[in-house]
């Protein structure tokens, strides 16, 4: 657990980017998320930890309304981004998802070229006026995704031909290309080897300068390494939320302590 001291814990802004109030999620008859209240800060990496099935991914998917694509899922309560309720009728979930990017557990590049993978978002949102601008966006995103040097000579090769770690960084670059304000990551390293994981973690720390990053992870070491704030979920409840250092060294709740010391999970 010494890793956790490597990351500076200063949080630049105290501003709340995302606020969740009394959020409940039901899948059919299952009550998956029970009364979650949380304030996620801007330009911060927030980690969600907890045992499998505790609802952390479900909650993450509420933040960009990805749960709308599941028929039986019902979300109640309020989630505000920049003070605006994203479950309001006026909000277009498609627009919201452009603002709140998402990276998935398994790298899922589209069956297209590397270039087209990155250009996909900018094209559908009309972010580039011409080819030159699009080229620029693609290069900038690939650089942000820390993969530019590896792929710059084969931008038109299929994205599915990259290695797992490269694919995941490509997916991060793809999410970054639409210029989101929040980046949600659902166990982005679970399919990667340690070296690729290290690269992605480094990247996450870089991304913190521009975005509010929320990451779901099963690895407590990873949470400790990359995040400034940590939320511990257990059985659909948000048990404890606070500074990462404090959660890992001096948790308030006995359940958190049991989990991080490996007694439940």
């Amino acid at each position: 657990m010494n890793d956790m001291r490597q990351v500076e814990r200063t949080v630049d802004t105290g501003q709340h980017k995302i606020t969740a109030k009394n959020v409940q999620v039901h899948y059919g008859d299952t009550h998956a998320i029970k009364d979650v209240n949380v304030n996620i800060e801007d330009k911060t990496v927030t980690a969600f930890i907890g045992p499998s099935g505790c609802g952390k991914s479900t909650f993450l998917r509420c933040i960009n309304r990805m749960n709308d694509t599941i028929d039986i899922c019902r979300v109640t309560g309020d989630i505000l981004i920049d003070g605006e309720d994203i479950y309001d009728k006026k909000v277009d979930p498609v627009q919201l998802r452009a603002k709140v990017g998402m990276v998935f557990q398994k790298p899922n590049p589209f069956p297209k070229s590397i270039y087209d993978n990155i250009a996909y978002g900018p094209r559908i949102h009309g972010l580039a006026r011409n080819k030159a601008e699009l080229d620029e966006i693609v290069e900038k995103s690939l650089r942000r995704g820390a993969i530019w040097d590896e792929v710059k000579d084969r931008l038109h090769a299929p994205g599915t031909g990259l290695s797992g770690g490269q694919q995941q960084r490509l997916c991060i670059a793809r999410a970054v290309a639409t210029e989101p304000e929040v980046l949600l990551m659902d166990e982005p390293c679970s399919a990667l080897d340690p070296i690729a994981t290290a690269q992605v973690e480094e990247l996450i720390d870089e991304l913190r300068r521009n975005y509010s990053v929320v990451i779901v992870t099963h690895s407590m070491q990873q949470a400790a390494r990359v995040s400034q704030k940590t939320a511990f979920f257990h059985l659909g409840n948000l048990v404890e939320y606070g500074e990462t250092g404090q959660i890992f060294t001096n948790p308030n709740d006995p359940r958190t302590e049991s989990y991080i010391t490996g007694r439940i999970g």
């Binding site: 960009n64 990805m66 694509t69 498609v94 627009q95 919201l96 998802r97 452009a98 603002k99 990017g101 998402m102 990276v103 998935f104 398994k106 899922n108 590049p109 589209f110 069956p111 297209k112 996909y120 978002g121 559908i124 949102h125 997916c171 793809r174 999410a175 639409t178």
Partner: peptide
């Protein structure tokens, strides 16, 4: 995962179908 990736980038249903699902 393909569809999720596309929806996650703010694509609509028909954009997702036209540009991701059908090519695949």
């Amino acid at each position: 995962a393909m569809r999720d990736g596309s929806y996650g980038l703010g694509a609509t249903k028909s954009e997702t179908i036209r540009q991701v699902v059908l090519p695949a």
